[in-house]
């Protein structure tokens, strides 16, 4: 019970604090909450946009959750998803005449592969050179951004556009968008992300590999004594994470933009950390909290227009406060102690 209650309390606390902040801007918190709700769920289109933002967050949330179960902290989902999207767009731009069913499959595999490689690097560095994955993944995020900028502006530049983006991909690459959402780009990427969550659940709780990952995450010496090679497990966990993050490219490139646009991600990778944390690093929790953060992101988008002084950046403040409340170990153990006393 506590496992479900604590995240819900943390969300409530974070929202209360964050909405309290809007008072400073002279706006009624209740009014702001109404706008958030309406803008996230008010119409089919709004709800579609919420789902559109939630899709990459499911994947980046999983990309943080899987290594976390193996005792690793993946701050690198941002870089992994950047290269995944870039790879999908590169395949689509370089071989534009590929026929339909083959084309999206190839682009998807390219996205997974690019993300996997980018995840495997910090996994390997941790396993074989002992350097910490947190610093390495942060650094790799910047390197990925630099590489993506180079490829986009020098190798695959779209000659018909002033924006920093690649040439469009071939028509055969585009995947199905659901019509019921009034034009919101909800594509096959959404069921794909949910399927990924199911597969991650099976991997972690129904396979030997998943058992080994969790064993390494809980106690490395114990895992080693049981004959598990922690280095190998770490490399695999980070590679899987990279592949999951790389899948973000499918929804963005094949399901939405039809090309790679520099800076398309509003920090999906970082919000994924919050998603995983709030979802307690469990696939079901990740999907649920991805939906919440997607709704916050979409909900806040209309604040600029509909209020006098509150800006869309309120969603960042709300997200930060929710993460802080859920992460405050001391707060929860203090509450537990008080209840028991």
């Amino acid at each position: 019970m506590r496992k479900v209650l604590q995240p819900i309390l943390a969300v409530a606390l974070g929202l209360a604090l964050g909405l309290g902040v809007t008072r400073i801007a002279g706006e009624s918190p209740w009014h702001v909450l109404q706008i958030l709700w309406r803008s996230a769920f008010g119409s089919n289109y709004d709800f579609g946009m919420t789902l559109f933002y939630s899709t990459p967050l499911i994947l980046t949330g999983l990309a943080v959750a899987v290594p976390f179960q193996a005792g690793l902290f993946n701050i690198g989902a941002e870089g992994q998803l950047t290269l995944g999207a870039l790879a999908a767009a590169a395949v689509g731009a370089l071989w534009p005449v590929m026929p339909w069913p083959l084309a999206p499959v190839l682009a998807t595999l390219a996205a997974i592969l690019a993300g996997t490689v980018w995840g495997a690097i910090p996994g390997w560095l941790r396993a074989r050179r002992g350097s910490h994955e947190v610093i390495n993944t942060i650094m790799l995020n910047f390197i990925a951004a630099g590489l993506a900028s180079y490829v986009t502006l020098y190798l695959l530049k779209n000659p018909d556009s002033q924006n920093p983006e690649t040439r469009p991909i071939g028509a055969g690459y585009l995947i199905h968008q659901f019509g019921v959402f009034g034009g919101a780009p909800v594509s096959l990427a959404l069921p794909l992300a949910v399927m990924a969550a199911v597969l991650v659940w099976i991997l972690l709780w129904r396979t030997v590999l998943g058992y080994e990952m969790r064993a390494v995450g809980q106690s490395e010496p114990a895992a080693r004594a049981a004959g598990i090679n922690p280095g190998r497990i770490r490399i695999i966990a980070m590679s899987v994470a990279g592949g999951l993050a790389g899948l973000v490219g499918v929804g963005e490139v094949l399901g939405n933009a039809g090309k790679f646009r520099l800076g398309f991600s509003p920090e999906y990778g970082f919000i994924g950390i919050a998603v995983a944390l709030l979802g307690r690093n469990q696939p079901v929790g990740v999907v649920a909290s991805a939906l919440l953060f997607g709704a916050l992101h979409k909900g806040a988008a209309d604040l600029d227009l509909e209020t006098e002084h509150v800006t869309r950046e309120l969603s960042l403040i709300l997200q930060a406060l929710i993460i802080l409340s859920v992460s405050a170990e001391g707060l929860w153990s203090w509450m537990k102690k008080r209840r028991e006393a």
Partner: peptide
């Protein structure tokens, strides 16, 4: 917490 502070 550090990432959250950056976001804040």
């Amino acid at each position: 917490a550090g990432m959250a502070i950056n976001m804040l």
